[in-house]
Nucleic acid binder design. Sequence first.
DNA 1: ACCTGAACACCGTTCAAGT
DNA 2: ACCTGAACACCGTTCAAGT
Lengths: 200, 200
Amino acid sequence: MTPAQRDGAAIRHTKPDVVAAAMTVLAENGLPGLSMRRIAEVLDVQVSALYWHFPNKQALLAAVSARIVGADARESATPRDLAAIAAALRERLLAHRDGAEVVSSSLALGLLDLPARAALVQAALAAGLDATAAEVASDTLVHYVIGYTFHEQQRMHASVVGAADASVDLAPARIDDRGDTFDAGLAMVVAGVRSASALR
Amino acid sequence: MTPAQRDGAAIRHTKPDVVAAAMTVLAENGLPGLSMRRIAEVLDVQVSALYWHFPNKQALLAAVSARIVGADARESATPRDLAAIAAALRERLLAHRDGAEVVSSSLALGLLDLPARAALVQAALAAGLDATAAEVASDTLVHYVIGYTFHEQQRMHASVVGAADASVDLAPARIDDRGDTFDAGLAMVVAGVRSASALR
DNA sequence: ACCTGAACACCGTTCAAGT
DNA sequence: ACCTGAACACCGTTCAAGT
């Protein structure tokens, strides 16, 4: 078999191929198991080959993050959409193992543009906030969603690993947690955002 | 020199010694540089010696986190304290390099009890929320503070490293950010929490 | 009770060289 | 344009053994 073929398929890869391989490894091993070596293994390639496609691991993670949060489908946003946009972001994060942590780090490093943030700004403006307040409101909502989901996903991981002491857990297990707690907290934040427009 | 002495000081260490050494390494090298080997180096000890004091790195990090968030000094909390408790938590996180990230991970793993959370619950109860709502409100506030501060500290790190693209940054730099943005967002969340008691 | 020394099984990144 | 092969400088954790 020549170096250009294998099983009838080309073995030269593209950037999207590398991202796809990374998402496979993430799904199977979680963020702690997402190593350059494992990604290379999935592609049947040497680790160093990955560095032709991406300058470093963080850049690859940023591309993975972009796939997780997706492209913005929303055309226009109204004040009523604030909670829905936030909830949709949470769904996207929950749809991928350790999604919140991956996205959180890319975001914090300034390597990721979050479509949901733009939509939230639009909704906040439509709610009557001024430009500055709308940005603050959006960041507040984004922080809430990512912080909550991060914590939620780490708990999943911890409960798989073993006995993390639930008694010191941030969100007590006695509230049955199918998103009720998330929604309740979100409602509080949204109410606060709305009150910022009422004050103006 | 005997193995029990050096420079006139004992070289056998205690748990608090290890935590102190870890905090030194954290201050000098940040979380990415906080390795067991570097901690051992500070104590002039083999890495394996650390595993007599702590079962693993996460447990050591939890002890570091507990030192960062401190003990609860507050006797009683009133509704007016909500913002102050949150702001005090942020100050503690900001006082240590990568403080928010360290605390965030310990918290998510259920290895850390957060005194500020208990104080927030008390303040929320005093504001008239029921028990469930008070816990949700506290978690919401904690998530906001940690999420915001995490992002803020990662930005510090990124700006030291080099040119993270500021144009895609979550909180735009055009708002001059000496805590104004934090306070504005916090005010929104607190307003939302208060509205939860008004509705009840 | 506290530590040494050595090993195991990993990491991210670089770089000359190949095709 | 895309990849190999080998190396460098690290990791966390374990474990028999020492004092």
